[in-house]
Design a protein around this nucleic acid. Structure first.
Length: 777
DNA sequence: GAATAAATTGTTTTT
DNA sequence: CAATTTATTC
C-alpha cells in the first residue's frame, strides 16, 4: 500500500485514524479509493482486520470495496466486516435475537409479504382498502419505524384524528402478525438490533469492543434509526468515520435524513472535517454543467468541484418528437459510438422511472443492441421463483404463515381458498402457526380435504428432515421435482412458461454459485441472502451490453457515455415533486439530476420528447427546468426532423435492422436479475445456464426424493431425524416447549417436553402435532 | 375447486 | 396498457 497515490485531502482522510472524522466527498472525488486506503492503513498500523467495520449502501458496493482492499493487503481483507446496514444487522440478529423473544430462524418479510399481511389486517378490521391504501399504510409504518416509533408513539405524534386511530390499529395488528410468524420487515432489521442492544447491554458491549473502527459510506442516506445504531456502536471507541455528500442525498422519501451529515459536527464537536473536491471522473464541461444545476439549490453546504481535465465534448441535447423518436435517437447514437470503438458496456441510459425503459427495449431488440436492465422487478420476486423460495422459507421457519399460504396450493393440489381460510382462522383462534393446524386439521373439514392437507404438511416436514441431510442444491432440486413446481410450466408451450422454466434453472444455477462462493452455505443463509440482495448487486457482470437503470440505481456508478432521457417537466422532475408546499422535494429532484450528470465521464447526452404517452394518454410536457440551469455554451443542440416533412426518418430505423428479430416485448420479461440473461436468448446467443444442470446431478437427487415418497406412502414417518433433546418446539395445543428427553425408537419414540406454561408432557413423536422452531442452531 | 372470461385499478425512486 | 382481482361456468 502506498499512500502517495492519494491526493492531499484523500491522504489526510486515510491518515486520520483516531476520533470522529467527517469526509465530505463530492461526486467522483475518489471516495472509495480513500476509504479503501484508510482501511488498509489501519491494518498497517496494527489494527486487526476484524475490528474494522465499513457499512455501505448496497451489497455491490461492499463487495467492490472488499475486492479493492484485497488488492492492497491480500487475504486479510476477508476479515474486515463489510456489509450494508441491513445485512449487517441480520448477521447480528442471527446470533442473539432469541434474547428478545424471536427464534433465530426468523424470516425477513419483503414488500410483497407486507402487502399480504396488510390485506389480511384490513380484512379483519373490516376496513376498505380504498380508504386505507396499502401503499400509504406501508409507507406510514416504514416511516414510523425509521424514527423508532411504535404504533402508540406514532399516533401521539400524528394529527391524532380518526384516520390515524385506524392506522394505529392496523399497525398494531401488523406487528402482531409479524411476531406470530417470527418475521421481521426491512426496518425491523435495524430496529430490532437496536432493541437487542438496549435490552442486553453485554451484546452491545461485545460489538462496541470488537468494532473499534467504524466507517459509514453514503452517510447522507442514513435514516434516524441507522444514525442511532451507528452512534451506539461507536460510542465506546469514538472512532467513527462517515463519508458522504449532501448534494447526493436522494433517498429522503425513504426516511434518509440529510441532517445526519449536516449535523455531524454538532454531534461530534471534535470531528475532523475533510473535503474532497477534486473530481477525477468527468470532463470539465460535464462537471460545470453539474455544478450549475446543483447551485440552484438553497439547502446545501457550499462547495465546488473542480477538475484538471479538459473541457471535452459538449453536452448533446436532443429534442425528440415522441418517446419512440427519443429511443431511436439514442439507438442511433450508440451505434455511432460503437463504430468509433466504444463497447456497449461503456454506455448507460438513465431514466426517472422504470416504466420508461420499455420503448428502449423495443428499439434495441429491433436494432440488435444488447442491453441489461437493472432494478425493477427483482429476479427473486418473480412468481415462479418466489414460490420456490416460499418452500425454502417455510422449511427454515415453520411459523412463517405468509409463505405457507403462498404454497399450500401451489402447484395446485386441491386445497382451495375456503379451506385455507378456515385453517387460517383456526390457527389464529388458537394462536398457533398455520402449519400446526395443517398437521391436524379440524374435523369440520371433509376427509378428502384433510387427507390433502395432512399429506402436504408431511411433505413439508420431510423437506425439513432433508434439509439437514442433503446439500443445498440437491435439496432445492428435490423440492422442485417433488412438488412439480417446474414441470407445471414445462407442459405449457407459451413463451412465458418457457421463460419460467429458464428462470427456475437459473435459480438452481445461482444456488450452485452461492455454494461455491459463500462460507456459510446453510439453507438459512441462502434464504437470508436472497432477501437482502437487490438487482443492483450484480452490475458489471456483462461487458457486452448497454446498461439501463433509474437515476437512483446509478448512484455510485460511472460510465464513459451517459444518456439522460425523458428530461421533461412532470417526468423529471416528477409531477409529484412539483408542488409549492414542499420545495424540499424539488431540491431532492435536483440532486438526483446532479447525480445523473456526474455519472458521465466523457460524453453526456440529454433528451426530451415533445409528446409522450404516459398513463395511457398523450401528454405534452415542457423541457425540464434542469436543462435551463445548464449554460448554453456547454450544450450542442440537435432537433428531430419533422416526421411529416421528412419521411426518411423512419428509414433511419431500418439502418439498424442488421439483425431483425420479431420477438414480442413481453413486459418485465427482459428485466435482468441475478445471473439471468434473457437478452442473450433474444439475440441468439447461447446461454450456458441450463447446460450445467443436465444429467447426473438431477438424477441423483430425484432418486433420493423418490425414496422419500415411498416412505410417505407407507406412512412411516422418520421422526428420529427430526427431533433431538434440547430442541424447542411448538405444540398445537400446549404452545412452546423444550424437549428434555427422548425415549424409545422409530414409531414408538416419545419425547418428554417442558412447556412454557409449566406443564410437562410425554408425547408420541409420530403423532404429536409438533413443530421444531430452533431449526438451525 | 379450477379454469376461463370480464372487470378493475394503478404508475417514483429501494435496502 | 397490463397486471391483478372478481365473476362465471363447468
Amino acid at each position: 500500500m502506498n499512500l502517495q497515490e492519494l491526493n492531499k485531502e484523500q491522504r489526510k482522510a486515510a491518515e486520520t485514524l483516531e476520533g470522529p472524522v467527517l469526509v465530505l466527498a463530492g461526486a467522483g472525488s475518489g471516495k472509495t479509493k480513500m476509504l479503501t486506503y484508510r482501511v488498509a492503513n489501519l491494518i498497517a498500523h496494527g489494527v486487526p482486520p476484524h475490528s474494522i467495520m465499513a457499512i455501505t449502501f448496497t451489497n455491490k458496493a461492499a463487495q467492490e470495496m472488499r475486492e479493492r482492499i484485497e488488492l492492497l493487503i491480500g487475504d486479510k481483507a476477508k476479515e474486515v466486516w463489510l456489509s450494508t446496514f441491513h445485512s449487517g444487522c441480520a448477521k447480528i440478529l442471527r446470533r442473539d435475537i432469541d434474547k428478545i423473544g424471536y427464534s433465530r430462524s426468523f424470516a425477513i418479510y419483503d414488500d410483497s409479504d407486507q402487502d399480504i399481511i396488510l390485506k389480511e389486517v384490513l380484512n379483519k378490521l373490516n376496513l376498505d382498502p380504498k380508504q386505507y391504501p396499502i401503499n400509504q399504510i406501508k409507507s406510514i409504518i416504514s416511516h414510523a419505524k425509521e424514527k423508532l416509533l411504535n404504533p402508540q408513539e406514532w399516533f401521539e405524534k400524528s394529527r391524532r384524528g380518526f384516520f390515524e386511530q385506524q392506522i394505529q390499529d392496523i399497525f398494531v395488528l401488523y406487528e402482531e402478525r409479524l411476531k406470530k410468524s417470527n418475521a421481521l420487515d426491512f426496518n425491523d432489521l435495524i430496529g430490532k438490533t437496536l432493541e437487542l442492544f438496549l435490552m442486553h447491554p453485554p451484546v452491545l458491549e461485545y460489538y462496541q469492543t470488537r468494532l473499534k473502527y467504524i466507517h459509514v459510506d453514503e452517510y447522507q442516506d442514513t435514516d434516524y434509526a441507522q444514525y442511532i445504531l451507528v452512534s451506539l456502536l461507536s460510542q465506546k471507541s469514538r472512532n467513527l468515520c462517515v463519508v458522504g455528500d449532501d448534494d447526493q442525498s436522494i433517498y429522503g422519501w425513504r426516511g434518509a435524513d440529510v441532517k445526519n451529515i449536516l449535523d455531524f459536527e454538532k454531534d461530534f464537536p471534535d470531528a475532523k472535517v475533510i473535503k474532497l473536491e477534486q473530481n477525477y471522473r468527468s470532463s470539465a464541461n460535464i462537471l460545470n454543467a453539474a455544478n450549475q444545476v446543483i447551485s440552484s439549490n438553497i439547502n446545501r453546504k457550499d462547495k465546488a468541484l473542480w477538475t484538471k481535465r479538459d473541457d471535452g465534448e459538449k453536452i448533446k441535447l436532443y429534442e425528440a418528437l415522441d418517446e419512440r423518436d427519443e429511443a431511436l435517437y439514442v439507438g442511433k447514437m450508440i451505434t455511432h459510438l460503437i463504430s468509433s470503438g466504444q463497447k456497449l458496456s461503456d454506455t448507460a441510459i438513465l431514466y426517472r422511472t422504470h416504466a420508461q425503459s420499455r420503448i428502449f427495449e423495443e428499439v434495441f431488440i429491433q436494432s440488435g443492441l444488447r442491453y441489461r436492465i437493472y432494478g425493477g422487478l427483482r429476479f427473486y420476486d418473480r412468481k415462479e421463483i418466489k414460490d420456490i423460495l416460499a418452500y425454502l422459507r417455510i422449511i427454515v421457519n415453520p411459523t412463517d404463515d405468509v409463505s405457507l399460504k403462498r404454497i399450500i396450493n401451489t402447484p395446485k393440489r386441491g386445497i382451495g381458498d375456503a379451506t385455507v381460510e378456515l385453517l387460517s382462522a383456526q390457527g389464529e383462534k388458537e394462536g398457533v402457526p398455520l402449519l400446526s393446524v395443517c398437521m391436524d386439521p379440524p374435523d369440520s373439514l371433509s376427509l378428502r380435504s384433510r387427507n390433502k392437507i395432512v399429506s402436504f404438511s408431511q411433505m413439508i416436514l420431510d423437506f425439513q428432515i432433508k434439509k439437514d441431510i442433503l446439500p443445498l442444491d440437491q435439496l432445492i432440486k428435490g423440492i422442485i421435482d417433488t412438488t412439480g413446481l417446474k414441470s407445471q410450466y414445462e407442459q405449457g408451450k407459451t413463451e412465458e412458461d418457457q421463460g419460467k422454466v429458464d428462470n427456475i434453472n437459473e435459480l438452481l444455477n445461482s444456488v450452485s454459485e452461492f455454494m461455491e462462493n459463500g462460507d456459510d452455505i446453510s439453507l438459512q443463509s441462502y434464504v437470508e441472502n436472497v432477501a437482502l440482495v437487490s438487482n443492483f448487486d450484480q452490475i458489471g457482470d456483462d461487458s457486452g451490453a448497454i446498461t439501463m437503470m433509474t437515476l437512483h440505481g446509478a448512484k455510485g456508478l460511472e460510465f464513459p457515455n451517459v444518456f439522460m432521457v425523458g428530461m421533461e417537466e412532470n417526468v423529471f422532475p416528477s409531477y409529484r415533486s412539483i408542488t409549492d408546499e414542499d420545495p424540499d422535494k424539488m431540491e431532492e429532484e435536483r440532486r438526483l439530476c446532479y447525480v445523473g450528470i456526474t455519472r458521465a465521464e466523457n460524453r453526456l447526452f440529454m433528451s426530451y420528447a415533445r409528446s409522450r404517452r404516459m398513463y395511457n394518454q398523450i401528454s405534452y410536457n415542457n423541457r425540464s427546468r434542469f436543462l435551463d440551469d445548464i449554460p448554453i455554451r456547454l450544450i450542442e443542440k440537435e432537433s428531430c426532423r419533422d416526421r411529416n416533412s421528412d419521411p426518411s426518418l423512419d428509414q433511419s430505423v431500418n439502418i439498424m435492422h442488421s439483425t431483425p428479430y420479431n420477438h414480442p416485448v413481453n413486459n418485465k420479461k427482459n428485466m435482468i436479475g441475478k445471473g439471468s440473461d434473457s437478452t442473450s436468448r433474444y439475440l441468439g446467443a447461447t446461454s450456458n445456464s441450463s447446460i450445467q444442470l443436465g444429467g447426473r446431478t438431477i438424477q441423483g437427487v430425484s432418486q433420493g426424493f423418490s425414496n422419500l415418497n415411498v416412505r410417505n406412502q407407507k406412512n412411516d414417518f422418520p421422526t428420529e431425524n427430526l427431533f433431538s433433546e434440547g430442541d424447542w418446539v411448538v405444540h398445537r395445543k400446549f404452545g412452546k416447549g423444550k424437549i428434555v428427553q427422548i425415549n424409545g425408537e422409530g414409531r414408538n419414540m416419545q419425547a418428554v417436553i417442558a412447556f412454557a406454561d409449566g406443564q410437562i408432557k410425554t408425547l408420541a413423536l409420530s403423532i404429536a402435532p409438533l413443530i421444531k422452531i430452533n431449526s438451525n442452531n
